[in-house]
């Protein structure tokens, strides 16, 4: 075999041999890589199963009707989550009532009305930035703005202050979801409406929104389910941890499920840890219910198109 031949572009037989010899090790490395990819996914799933099982095992023993209909107590066997459940319900209704019009309105404005000006782009960058601000910072804003500055309106550390703080927290999520739902509506519908002499708003209200509505609703429900699980911003605005009564109005002091759970986890006695797990089961059941609703709406939406 000539030296010149081995330098040519065509591989010499010896090189081909070496290439072949290499193949088994390359394939085995391939298998190791594939296995580690599956392992990583498996670990994530296993931790999820571990977490859910732990909480079920810890909490199911103390989960009963008395637990759901009792007020918090110093004695773990008498403590319940009624006040927290009612507080969560109150806060969620207010959050939904404020977030829905404001978030959807802002989404409609940005997607349908706004021209491509520097102001629009500023708002867009700003919204993506807000989505990255830690939730506890929103709590500090709520503390300064709603609890202190607007105390005559909100009544201090009240349902209204908590709800407004959570509204600001989830607004970016709702706006982005609204815009995506609107963008999915075919442009020909808008053009047809405009060609018939309708104003932009008439087109949006009568034609675009009905089609986009299930998508928007899904986004809003998912955002609300995020708000339900939030603890830190409400602790920062000073939602109380011990509330042995139901909220009576928007200006009433309140507590919510995650804060009640946090309070129980933080105590040293094991009995309180068990009822914390029971509280978590209730919280997760509420979340599961909302997510199922969102998935149901999304599937119906996908079928109708």
């Amino acid at each position: 075999m000539d030296v010149n031949d081995s330098r040519s572009a065509v591989a010499s037989p010896r090189q081909t041999d070496r290439f072949r010899q290499n193949l088994p090790s390359r394939y085995s490395r391939d298998r190791v890589f594939q296995a580690s990819a599956w392992l990583a996914t498996g670990i994530a799933v296993a931790v999820l199963v571990w977490l859910l099982l732990t909480i079920l095992i810890d909490g199911v023993g103390t989960l009963n009707w008395t637990f759901i209909t009792s007020y918090p107590s110093r004695k773990p066997e008498q403590a319940g989550i009624l006040a927290a459940l009612a507080g969560t319900l109150w806060v969620m209704v207010v959050v939904a009532a404020v977030t829905f019009p404001v978030g959807v309105g802002a989404g409609i404005y940005l997607e349908e009305f706004a021209s491509d000006s520097w102001l629009t782009r500023l708002i867009e960058i700003n919204i993506s930035n807000l989505a990255g601000v830690p939730s506890i910072i929103y709590g500090l804003l709520g503390l300064a703005a709603f609890v202190r500055l607007m105390e005559p309106v909100t009544g201090g550390r009240s349902v209204l202050s908590g709800a407004l703080t959570l509204t600001l927290l989830i607004l970016p999520v709702v706006i982005v979801a609204t815009r995506e739902a609107l963008r999915a509506v075919s442009n020909s519908i808008r053009l047809a409406g405009l060609a018939l002499g309708a104003t932009q708003w008439q087109v949006v209200w009568n034609h675009v929104l009905p089609i986009a509505f299930p998508g928007i609703l899904t986004g809003v429900i998912l955002a609300l389910s995020r708000a339900i699980g939030e603890t830190a911003p409400l602790i920062a605005i000073g939602a109380l941890t011990f509330i042995p009564f139901l909220p009576e109005g928007l200006q009433s002091p309140f507590t919510v499920l995650p804060i009640q759970i946090y309070n129980w986890i933080g105590r040293p006695q094991d009995e309180f840890h068990a009822i914390a797990a029971s509280g978590i089961i209730v919280l997760m059941a509420v979340l599961l219910l909302m997510n199922t609703l969102a998935i149901y709406l999304r599937n119906r939406f996908q079928k109708s198109l």
Partner: peptide
């Protein structure tokens, strides 16, 4: 689901 679990639950865990 893993991403949607409230952080207080992770704290318990």
């Amino acid at each position: 689901i893993l991403a949607g679990i409230p952080t207080v639950v992770y704290g318990y865990f």
